[in-house]
Design a protein around this nucleic acid. Structure first.
Lengths: 153, 153
DNA sequence: CAGTTAGTTCTGCAAATACAGAACAAAATA
DNA sequence: TATTTTGTTCTGTATTTGCAGAACTAACTG
């Protein structure tokens, strides 16, 4: 597949977006390439060529993506190459996990509330309120997913 | 305020949690300290002493936190010191912003869908589904907040 | 078995990060 | 006016990051 300038520019922006999420640059660009590539599956070689980076960098990035469960590869009979693809199947699950991860701050808030004195009740109260909201939010996530499934049909 | 070992350990864990979110180490620790400190307000000096870091590092970290709107300082008559505190007031708003930020990936998904060929309709379809879900999710966030407010009273 | 293919692991380095320490600024105080 | 207080900005540096390139491995091929 030949990438146009527009493709390349979009890959870069998707890369930067993922960098902001704490991933290393190349990982984000590979996600971009796998998203944009018309086949959905891209060989190791093609990643190296399309992104113009070294084999070692690609190898490490793909190992990372597979460890995170965001990427898998398949093989073809009579072809030793690995064809890498994003695990699009469980995007919604990934999204749910990310949401729960955000709400993980609730644990810290609760721990903080345990060690705090009563010296500043207003502050404590606001923290309690936030913790309550996070609890509410976590409970509502699955409900939200359910409603989406139903309204979708 | 004297910090116990438990306090210090909790500050470190809150620091690491924020590091994983892309913040620099000291910024996360300052958030931890401001959360745990019984007054809620902590002077520049005390931050330097409690965390055992340089003034320059604290200055930069506080500038960053203020720029991000996560921190403010107040002053007291006859006292030149600045007392820094977290902006707990709008935690829920911050949380909502973070959620919308996550859902920002929808923009990229839609852009990708525009440049993709019809060569892999299954892949395209899954992406479309994910985009639809993100759209649904964004719409539902304010509803969720509303429901929390009501059930809270 | 020698050579090729496909990818991994090791080594080194350039650039970025995160901070310390010193110099500095501005205001209050003596 | 000299000194202290409260922080900021500048300069240098140890550490970490992110990758390149080379060496390596394993499997296939001629």
């Amino acid at each position: 597949m030949v990438l146009t300038e527009k493709h390349k520019e979009l890959i870069e922006r998707i890369g930067v977006f993922h960098e902001h999420k704490g991933m290393q640059p190349l990982v984000g660009r590979i996600i971009g390439l796998l998203l944009i590539h018309e086949e959905g599956e891209v060989s190791f070689d093609e990643i190296v060529e399309q992104l113009g980076v070294s084999k070692s960098a690609v190898s490490n990035a793909l190992t990372f993506l597979q460890a995170k469960g965001r990427c898998i590869y398949s093989t073809r009979p009579g072809d030793r190459k690995r064809y890498f693809a994003l695990k699009v199947s469980d995007w919604r699950e990934d999204f749910a996990k990310e949401l729960e991860n955000i709400a993980e701050i609730q644990k810290f808030i609760d721990e903080v509330l345990e060690v705090r004195t009563e010296k500043n009740p207003e502050f404590n109260c606001k923290m309690k309120d936030f913790s309550d909201f996070l609890g509410f939010f976590k409970k509502e996530i699955p409900v939200l997913f359910e409603r989406f499934k139903r309204q979708q049909t």
